[in-house]
Design a protein around this nucleic acid. Structure first.
Lengths: 192, 192
DNA sequence: GCCACTTGAGACATTCTTGTCTCATGTGAA
DNA sequence: TTCACATGAGACAAGAATGTCTCAAGTGGC
């Protein structure tokens, strides 16, 4: 019908399916496999052939999120220049993955019993290390712990993604809103 | 068995049930009615007698959240003193409801099709008005929109609630972490 | 003690989602 | 053309959660 030719044999584009799933689940985290399939433009049977079950799909999304985060961390070169500039680069690199991150951030609550993917631990550590470096260099205040700043970064990215998807914030302001709030806060800099 | 006498006829304490449900659903938003009932120490049948269905329960939690938010807004006297101090009072008053807010904040994604409760619109407007006042008084920077600051406040409260519940942040630091990040950001004030 | 009322426990049908399967269709390569 | 392969559509059973019901038990007011 409205199929698009991908490669040979018209094989399903795994990347495309994951993107669609991420976009849908970000909006409605309880979407069924059928809804996910429709969103990707494939049948439920085919979706099942590529992702044996809902948990497999979510795990795949988690892997994708981890990959994108690690790629963003690398691209942002967190060890270079001032910590402030590194944070700005990090948010910019992380923006394309914001929707996926928002989904995974809340979904992680469900993995309570099980051990969480070690990838997150590495990413958390990398970001926290950046904030710690900023504190040691005297750039960042020391009364906000690196762990909290890391958590806040996730939370603000999720809030930003939702706010954009619901039209409360313009997509082009995403970066500025998050970075400026995270770094500078709401108060005017000129204040004593 | 381990029942506690409340009023006459040992009627179920609606408030207690809602509190338990909020606490459980904050941790695991997909908990079943059976789990909610067990968490409240009552049977599924009794839970059903008081809340006809899962949606009714969620709506009741939403009402509770709205009530607590409106009470917090009143208690914080958002029109008094500096906007900065008002924000501090607001977060302090909002803290007890943080867990419930975190749950509703993500759950609201599910109400996509339906119209959202007008209570939230009033609360959003009240908080946004506070940020707007702060901007007009020259306290707050004007490049961060009131709508975004409101959204960020919700997001940080949710992140804070989760971080505390998972032990990444000490409960006693909840207020400080949120208020200081929201108002002052991560950068040291002494920066140019 | 008696009665009205509420609860807990369990049975039950219903609905929704999932996971599996089969079969017809259509594509691209040989 | 012919073959191998992937897809779409649909049927099907299994499981989970829900909503409803009945019945026995316990409490408090009378």
């Amino acid at each position: 019908m409205s199929q698009v030719a991908y490669g040979c044999l018209m094989a399903v584009d795994r990347e495309h399916v994951l993107r669609s799933a991420a976009a849908l689940l970000t909006r409605k985290s309880t979407s069924t496999m059928d809804e996910v399939a429709k969103a990707a433009g494939i049948s439920r049977a085919t979706l099942h052939r590529h992702f044996a079950g809902r948990d497999v799909l979510v795990r795949a999304l988690e892997e994708l999120g981890i990959e994108e985060c690690e790629a963003a961390l690398s691209a942002a070169r967190l060890d270079d220049g001032t910590a402030q500039d590194a944070v700005r680069r990090l948010v910019r690199e992380l923006e394309p993955a914001a929707g996926l991150l928002a989904f995974l951030y809340t979904e992680n609550q469900l993995f309570e019993g099980e051990e969480q993917n070690e990838g997150w631990a590495r990413i958390d550590a990398g970001i926290a290390a950046l904030f710690r470096r900023g504190q040691q260099d005297g750039e960042f205040r020391i009364d906000l712990t690196p762990a909290w700043l890391t958590e806040a970064l996730y939370g603000l990215m999720a809030s930003g993604a939702w706010a954009v998807s619901e039209g409360r914030v313009a997509a082009k302001d995403f970066n500025h809103m998050i970075v400026e709030l995270l770094l500078g806060g709401a108060l005017r800099r000129e204040e004593s």
